[in-house]
Design a protein around this nucleic acid. Sequence first.
RNA 1: GCGGAUAUGGCGGAAUUGGCAGACGCACCAGACUUAGGAUCUGGCGCCCAAAAGCAUGGAGGUUCGAGUCCUCUUAUCCGCACCA
Length: 816
Amino acid sequence: MPEKKQDVFNDKMRRYNFTAVEKKWQTIWEEEEAFETKADYSMPKFYALVEFPYPSGQGLHLGHPRPYTALDIVARKRRLEGYNVLFPMGWDAFGLPTENYAIAQGIHPAIVTKENIAHFKEQLHSIGYSFNWSREVDTTDPGYYKWTQWIFLMLFRHGLAYKKEFPINFCPSCKVGLANEEVVDGKCERCGAEVTRKVKNQWMLRITDYAQRLLDDLETVDFVERVKVSQANWIGRSEGADISFPIENTSAQLNVYTTRPDTIYGATYMAIAPEHPLIDEYIADIKNSGEVLEYRSLSQNKSDFERTEMAQSKTGVKLDGLLAYNPISEELIPIYATDYVLMTYGTGAIMAVPAHDERDYEFAKKYGIPIREVISGGDISEAAYTQMQGSVCINSPLIDGLSADEGKEKMIEILEERKIGQRKVNFKLRDWVFSRQRYWGEPIPLIYCEDCGWVEVPESELPLQLPAVDNYRQTDDGDSPLSLMPEWYNTTCPKCGKPAVRETDTMPQWAGSSWYFLRYTDPRNESALAGKEALAYWMNVDWYNGGMEHTTLHLLYSRFWHKFLFDLGIVDTPEPYAKRTSHGMILGTDNQKMSKSRGNVINPDEVIGEYGADTLRMFEMFVGDFEKTAPWNADSVKGCKRFIDRVYAMQDFLVSGDGYSDELAGLMHSLIKKVSYDFENLKFNTAIAAMMKAANEIYKAGSITRGELRDFLILLNPVAPHVTEEIWQEAGYAGRLYEAKWPEYDESKLSENYIEIPIQINGKVRAKANVPADASEEDVALIVRENEAVTSYIEGKAIEKEVYVAGRIYSFVLKQ
RNA sequence: GCGGAUAUGGCGGAAUUGGCAGACGCACCAGACUUAGGAUCUGGCGCCCAAAAGCAUGGAGGUUCGAGUCCUCUUAUCCGCACCA
């Protein structure tokens, strides 16, 4: 050991060349297949999953490494704990940017994709992740999308895929259909033209059939609360009743859905969507039909954006000549067409209760419709009163005096008895629009035959490959480029053999990512999406981390597909993911989202070049609470680099001894406990802080035993795998660090013999006392009284109360 | 508008879930070692103050021996969804 500690750090300071060292270990790990899964299915397994990236042309940005490093830490820890770990990576490579690049440059998207993947892969390698590269998947690989298509066929065969007219966003200037994310403020992202709606015949998936199960099973999984809440809100279950209102002087009934049957006496008008078929049916009876039809076409031409823009002020038009009959209040009430009622939810018609619904209130005020209070508790001259809790039904002869909740139940019973309505559950969740009029996606494996209708492409012909095209652009009508290729789409009907045509739409980007976690379990299987045994062993995903932005799309879609495959008996579990966590975004140094246009993007390659991969990994974890957004701070990165250098230099005070020294034993045991706990609970920042603090203590102590350094290196290894592996080798420990065993701590050795407890007098800390850790309350009371500061405070004053919280605090309350 | 979060030093952030507010890091200050320092080591560092005391977790109240943490009200910011009957 050197005489003076600082001597070590002058010219003699031990340093290492992180670039060379990191490269060295990455090569060794690869050669030794250090992180590959074991074929031994008797081992306990752990499946860690991060969302596979879209390989964009820009390469990785600083946001990518945050979740990857987090689960890499967990995966590495699990391996050290003796688990067989599956930690795969792949590419969600179908998508718009690549396609747009292809359109602009005329280069086949497959070629661009290949280049981008190579770049991404190299970057990921340079960060030292322990991914199972032998299991890499690529959604654009025909060997992969064969099974995406196969799952679609199964959905079709089981009646979960159907075709329907559906409006899409269309840019009249670019003449292309746009995804929602390409529409910014109602304008085309590229050319800025106003986006309109265009009705297309689209494939839809019946995710709504699974709405109840998708909601119920949230109870069975360990997802962070905010994810569960968003999914539940998105599914949007509500309970109410369908009720029929006869139309006077006709045989028609107007069916409505309401969650508030208890307010039916307050229904003073009916409101229907402008598209509602009632208008067409009784157009002859509507005196102002011209006005009504004009209103309809006006609202139909509005884009979604305009419609929400207009939400400020409600508009509508009364159907002159038609009146509805309220079957409970036995009154005749007017009917309005208005676009605040949506054709796509419920029945497209509502009973409007202005007194107890804010929208109806606003509408009734504007059009001078009576507002009748039927639930007490509010002031309806001011605003609609919508509370149910603690409210009582009034002006409602059949349910007067009941609470709103009871009134609702009672009214549903009455409606069912009289056969004018029934209990009904509704969901906000819509079916999934599954076709895209694009090139760069999985072709939908269906054929249309004049005689047989839609017919499956035979399974033996899968994958149905994307053909080479001359032009990747949509037609002026917004159809897929495949629709310009008669040589591809003309075929024969697999059923009857007559001439028939292929579907030219492709699948959305969400398709490939809806089941990729299954493919990782057995990625090269050619006869099934994955082998039974592999699925049984590896599923469920034990821990899945991903962005909040995928909560209501990818996460819900993949749960849906998984449940469908479960129903078919292909997978054994009703849910794919046992646990889901979410990371916060990394912002630029200006506290803004990193983006090319803001010019605040930092490339991870720069950080690796200047400080090394271990430092990048550590800082990504140290920057703040994993679940919160955090701004990148280029200066703070240095702190992590310094710490790593200090750890490297610890070898200079290495002394013999496989165990812990008396001086550091308590520190080591509590460090093992802290780090083990924090790594499991997304508290990477405090785990690193604890290791930094421990390093400071070790420097103060001036020596470290071989046993202490060994365990310290193992704890730090998941965060900084290269440097720890290097020290392991240089210091002469046996074997590889990646094969070491995660240390255990001894609870009895955590605490010191003596502990310092603060003494409060009237709520303020005035003194501290050292007491034996195992002292009784009586003992502590005596020790505390010996303290001079305490005696000076309590002398001559009456003690009103004394509180001792064992090991924490001693508190006196004095009479003032 | 609805839903979800967040607010703590100059900065990023800690706080065993009601028990010493500011761990750890950055920046800064002083000293050491240096031909040199964008290296390293040692120490300091919430505000106010000579010190003692006092004041401090967006703001205002409250509960408690004790509140960043619990309750009520309020302000600001961020994210998601947009008339879901």
